[in-house]
Design a protein around this nucleic acid. Structure first.
Length: 384
DNA sequence: AAGCTCGTCAACCGCTGTCGT
DNA sequence: TACGACAGCGGTTGACGAGCT
């Protein structure tokens, strides 16, 4: 086990702070700065440990703390940053002036996380929950039934609820499996180079005093491309980000696509040749597929009932975007197009909902935008 | 009115990373 | 290099209040 609790010794006080204690701490820090937190309580005349003082100051007493409800804009930023950074609350807080990591963490766990779950979105991956729509296993089994030849008949079965264009892209990928192999790191490096183009991040995320977001992204993405089990925040994150250019989003998504199929491979086969291990099939096809995707007018999500396909001619283009994203993500959590980033979706929320919007209104409005049909053949009620 | 459940959030705990010796 | 001290982080807890039965 770790070291003993710091407050166990010397009869130091624990629990809620009194106004008197708060005032002592404020007065001391205003006069002397916090200096060493370890010596601060003694100097300030507080029966607290330094850790407790630091927490009280940084989470509650600091003068620059913004209190009150999170605005919708702040909420958007949190979601976007969380999709990039994961549970790095301090890193997220560094980009939300006046908000503390503790506050953001609490808000995430009590509001945003639940809302995403209600919408059927995995709050970890920011993708539609594949445990509800377990298309990946169907897709996977299709791929490995015939390793080098896509079982189109089975995939065609998916067309009931997945856009055929997405399947076509998958088929294209498979057909390229015999192409020459380059090293995976080349793909990763390309991705990271693009990620490090600072101008592609919104100014608000790149504050002078903040830590290096790009390094953090790099860390996350490196993890993403080298593990087979870790949730992969990068793709959804970047496709959420309206500030990334089209090519970058595509490259990131393709990287995820590549990563995801590694997962499939390791899940189902330890000894079969892995068609997805040819990492650079993906790299080699980036241009090709990007072109294919950009040519798609709309990759709507198809329900099992074709009559209930989300209407691409709807006046609400954001609805189209939502439809696309869920449609595309449903197969592999990837392959979103630049024009269909979920960020646009959230932005659309904010254009309709101002900061005083109630939570229910936010929830309701965004739920409508994010709503996607679960095919009736997939009864998910048992999972809910 | 009383008891219960649930949501919220301040505070704590244990761990990790960094720095100095 | 090894070690200890310290700051900081993320997960978890528990007190409290609101709402429901």
């Amino acid at each position: 086990m770790g070291r003993a609790p710091c407050c166990d010794k010397n009869g130091l006080k624990k629990g809620p702070w009194t106004p008197e204690e708060d005032q002592k701490l404020i007065d001391y820090i205003q006069d002397h700065g916090h200096g060493s937190w370890r010596t601060l309580p003694k100097n300030a005349g507080l029966q607290r440990c330094g850790k407790s003082c630091r927490l009280r100051w940084t989470n509650y007493l600091r003068p620059d703390i913004k209190r009150g409800r999170f605005s919708f804009e702040e909420e958007e930023i949190i979601i976007q940053l969380h999709s990039v950074l994961g549970n790095k609350w301090s890193a997220i807080a560094a980009r939300l002036p006046g908000r503390t990591d503790n506050e953001i963490k609490n808000y995430w766990n009590t509001h945003i996380r639940k809302r995403l779950l209600r919408m059927g979105i995995d709050p970890v991956t920011h993708s539609p929950r594949l445990d509800l729509l377990d298309l990946s296993s169907v897709f996977n089994s299709s791929l490995y039934t015939h390793q080098s030849q896509l079982n189109l008949s089975r995939l065609l079965g998916l067309q009931q609820f997945v856009n055929p264009d997405v399947l076509r892209i998958a088929s294209t990928l498979l057909s390229q499996q015999q192409q020459s192999v380059a090293h995976q790191n080349e793909t990763t490096d390309l991705l990271l180079q693009n990620l490090q183009v600072q101008n592609q991040f919104p100014q608000q995320f790149v504050q002078p005093n903040s830590s290096n977001i790009h390094q953090e992204i790099q860390n996350n993405c490196t993890t993403t491309t080298t593990t087979t089990t870790t949730p992969t925040p990068c793709t959804s994150a970047l496709s959420f980000d309206p500030f990334l250019n089209d090519q970058l989003v595509m490259q990131v998504n393709l990287n995820q696509f590549q990563s995801n199929h590694h997962n499939f491979a390791y899940q189902n086969s330890n000894d079969q040749p892995n068609i997805w291990q040819d990492n650079n099939n993906v790299a080699a096809l980036q241009t090709d597929i990007a072109g294919s995707l950009s040519g798609l007018p709309n990759l709507g999500f198809y329900s099992s009932d074709q009559s209930s396909v989300i209407d691409p001619s709807s006046e609400n283009s954001n609805f189209n975007n939502a439809a696309f994203n869920f449609g595309a993500l449903t197969t592999t959590s990837v392959l979103s197009t630049p024009s269909s980033s979920p960020t646009e979706l959230t932005q659309s929320c904010s254009t309709h909902l101002n900061s005083s919007t109630t939570e229910d209104e936010r929830d309701s409005y965004c739920s409508e935008l994010l709503k996607f049909e679960i095919p009736s053949i997939l009864d998910v009620s048992d999972f809910m």
